[in-house]
Simulated assay, not measured.
Amino acid sequence: MLKQILGDVLEVGIGTGSNLPYYPEYIRSLTGIDFSRNMLKHAKDKANNSQYKFPIRLVEADIQELPFQDNTFDSIVSTCVL
């Protein structure tokens, strides 16, 4: 599912962090954003309770107003739930 991502990765709508186990260990870093503080708390618990080989940063933010400069990320992951 996430085999083609590289470098610094942005996951939009990280939610509870359910995708964390699927990230390849060779990425440089992962930044996850979500507008829900409660969801980010769950994602933080998952990130802290696992041994990932890349740094994970979680940010409370809305996708419509990303708090990052252009060209910060090499890959973007977005999950659509229907």
Rank of each mutant, 00 (worst) to 15 (best):
N49E: 04
I56K: 01
I63F: 08
F54Q: 10
P21S: 02
D34N: 08
T31I: 08
T31F: 08
L6S: 15
I5S: 11
Q64E: 13
C80W: 06
N71K: 14
K46I: 06
A43R: 06
T72M: 04
L2E: 04
Q51N: 15
R28I: 09
I5Q: 01
C80R: 08
S78W: 03
L30C: 12
E11M: 02
G7N: 01
R28D: 10
D70K: 06
E65T: 15
D74K: 11
L82V: 14
M1G: 10
N19T: 03
M39R: 13
F73P: 11
F68S: 13
Y22A: 11
T79H: 01
A61Q: 08
F35D: 08
E25Y: 00
H42P: 02
K44Q: 13
G7L: 00
N48F: 05
R28E: 11
L2K: 06
V9H: 11
G17Y: 04
Y26A: 15
N48A: 10
I56H: 01
T16R: 04
E60Q: 15
L30W: 02
M1Q: 10
G17T: 00
Q64C: 10
T72E: 10
L2I: 00
D74I: 09
I56V: 09
K41T: 10
L66H: 11
V59K: 00
A47R: 04
D34C: 05
G13D: 13
I27H: 13
A61G: 14
A61P: 15
H42D: 01
R37K: 14
F73A: 09
K44A: 07
N71W: 00
L6M: 03
I27T: 14
D70G: 07
Q4M: 07
G13H: 05
T16G: 15
K44P: 01
G32F: 04
D8Y: 01
R37L: 13
I14H: 06
I56T: 01
D62V: 09
Q64W: 01
T16I: 09
L40P: 15
I5D: 00
N48V: 04
S75I: 12
H42K: 11
S75K: 07
L40H: 14
D62F: 12
N48I: 01
V59S: 11
T16P: 12
T79V: 13
L58S: 13
V77M: 05
V59Q: 05
D70W: 03
I76H: 02
V77C: 07
S18D: 05
L2F: 03
V9G: 14
Q51V: 12
I63Q: 13
Y26V: 13
K46Y: 03
L10N: 03
K46W: 00
V77I: 14
T16E: 02
T16H: 01
V9N: 07
K3V: 04
A61W: 03
R57M: 10
V59F: 09
